[in-house]
Design a protein around this nucleic acid. Structure first.
Length: 495
RNA sequence: GUCCCCAUCGUCUAGCGGCCUAGGACACUACCCUUUCACGGUAGAUACACCGGUUCAAAUCCGGUUGGGGACGCCA
């Protein structure tokens, strides 16, 4: 076996945020590169001037960075300048390369200038459909000779360059065999495609053409990409053959679907990495989740660190069937990651969400206080975005008697409990109340009032957080200053 | 319409001819823990799309049917 170094690529087209399907493709390629000690290349496929934007490229780069998928070659993550020996890495900057290749094809007679107008082409297709044939464009009966074509071009006419699949005198039908890394042997009849455009009449090259040339020139060895490209592969194989380039190995991944088994799209809710980031999902969890949507670990373990993912990764464990995106399981996975995070890290990741909700938690600077608070709350959080409604209990300015407390408020002993609770608080000397101190205070309130059980417990809870449902008091009370506890019970007594 | 891909619990999946009375995970149900909720623990219910072959033996191999998806662009 030759030991050609593995080179894989992720080649998004910059038309919006990175979709989770794209993120999965990127992850798989990244993992394969790391596993084999190869290179991971980012290539920007922006030949569609209409849809591609600079802004989208920036967004996708940021999404990839957020996911922690570092590329070895491609646009620099910060400056976007080309980074690596096989650049440029943006197809819009490689136009000359494509044009030269197209010329080679034209000169060898493998491709031809096509002067036909859209209207003419449409008419041809319509006629084909009517006669029950696939609407594939073939070369005209007599090709415009090259010298004449060039003269017409020089006079300002425009023409596309088409790859000629069937040349006169060649067998009409051939079979191309693709040994797909995930699907096995796939056979394509050559008449599956008509003569396809390589260069548009406006001079811009087309996806299939760029893709094949770039994969060859960038010495890509393996291509893991979505299943939608499976039939494109035939055209690319024809191009490799025409140029005498070696073909990379391909592996076509199945789709990620929505709950209705349709391709996952905006109408299913969150689909881009950015959506998930905003909803409080963590990149580690999202990566781990999408990893498992189309791939499985040999021993069935599901929570895997990046190191373990690299260690275990092999394309032999891809699942060729499509997968429905299960956001309930993603939620579970996110909560697992969230709980496992060191408190310091968790605290810092929570900040944007607390800030956005307008919460200021000054006590957070105290490491011990923060530790307490996070231990108390993190088992109730599934996403980072769950934090505000939990931490709200700690912000005096947000305290109020919630509608859910109405029943408790009406109990006959409630007022008595609140009064005793308040006087016990006032007797307490220190600024904060520890957990055992709270238990003692609670006992004294019980003794003084003769109230016990739910009748005792719920009113105190309401006096602390304004509702009978929430985090355990024994962890919550020590997080609140005595002054704010008094302030709260006062407001209850007034209500 | 033509060509291509796919088919195991509700969902993600294990399984690559006998270890399968089909295993794990999420979700679900019950119980335990808990002076609420959550966390945690234990137990349970639920699947090989269908029909034919091949074989001593089929979830696994082959053919067909059905169902889903994709490609057939001067989109990527």
């Amino acid at each position: 076996m030759s030991s050609t170094p593995v080179r894989v690529r992720f080649a998004p087209s910059p038309t919006g945020y990175l979709h989770v399907g794209g993120a999965r493709t990127a992850l798989y390629n990244f993992l394969y590169a790391k596993k084999t000690g190869g290179e991971f290349i980012l290539r920007v496929e922006d030949t569609d001037l209409e849809r591609s934007t600079e802004e989208s490229m920036r967004m996708q780069i940021n999404d990839l960075k957020w996911l922690g998928l570092k590329w070895d070659e491609g646009p620099h993550p910060e400056t976007h300048a080309d980074m690596g020996p096989y650049g440029p890495y943006r197809q819009s900057h490689r136009k000359e390369i494509y044009l030269q290749h197209a010329q080679k094809l034209v000169e060898s007679g493998r491709a031809y200038y096509d002067f036909r107008t859209d209207a003419e082409l449409d008419a041809i297709k319509e006629r084909l459909i009517k006669t029950g044939k696939p609407p594939q464009i073939e070369a005209p009966e007599t090709l415009v000779p090259l010298t004449e074509a060039r003269a017409r071009l020089a006079k300002g006419e425009t023409a596309a360059i088409r790859f000629q699949v069937n040349r006169k005198g060649e067998p009409e039908k051939r079979e191309y065999v693709l040994n797909d890394l995930v699907r096995g042997e796939v056979k394509f009849p050559s008449d599956m495609v008509g003569d396809f455009v390589c260069i548009r009449s406006n001079g811009m090259p087309v996806y299939n053409f760029c893709c094949a040339i770039d994969d060859a020139l960038m010495k890509i060895t393996h291509v893991f990409r979505a299943e939608e490209h499976l039939s494109n592969t035939l055209r690319q194989m024809m191009l490799f053959e025409a140029f005498g380039y070696a073909s990379p190995k391909f592996g076509h991944l199945s789709f990620i679907l929505g709950p209705d088994k349709q391709k996952l799209s905006k109408r299913h809710g969150a689909t881009s990495c950015n959506d998930f980031r905003l909803k409080g999902y963590m990149p580690e969890a999202l990566c781990n989740f999408i990893l498992l949507s189309g791939w499985s670990s040999p021993d069935g373990r599901e929570i895997l660190s990046r190191e373990e993912q690299i260690e275990l990764f092999t394309y032999e464990r891809f699942n060729s069937a499509p997968a429905v995106f299960d956001d309930t399981k993603l939620l579970w996975m996110n909560s697992m990651y969230l709980r496992a995070l060191p408190h310091e890290e968790l605290w810092s990741r929570l900040q944007p969400f607390l800030k956005e909700a307008g919460l200021t938690i000054p006590q957070g600077d105290d490491v011990q206080w923060r530790d307490h608070a996070l231990s108390a709350f993190k088992t109730s959080m599934q996403t980072l975005a769950d934090a505000p409604k939990l931490f709200e209990a700690l912000d005096d300015s947000k305290f109020s008697l919630k509608p859910e407390a109405t029943e408790v408020k009406a109990w006959p002993d409630t007022l008595k409990v609140w009064a005793a609770w308040k006087s016990e608080l006032e007797k307490h000397a220190a600024k904060y109340i520890t957990e055992p101190e709270f238990a003692a205070i609670q006992d004294r309130v019980k003794d003084q009032t003769g109230v016990k059980g739910k009748q005792l417990f719920q009113p105190i809870r309401v006096a602390v957080i304004g509702t009978p449902q929430g985090t355990e008091l024994k962890v919550l009370v020590p997080l609140l200053a005595k002054s704010s506890l008094i302030n709260r019970v006062d407001r209850c007594l007034k209500a």
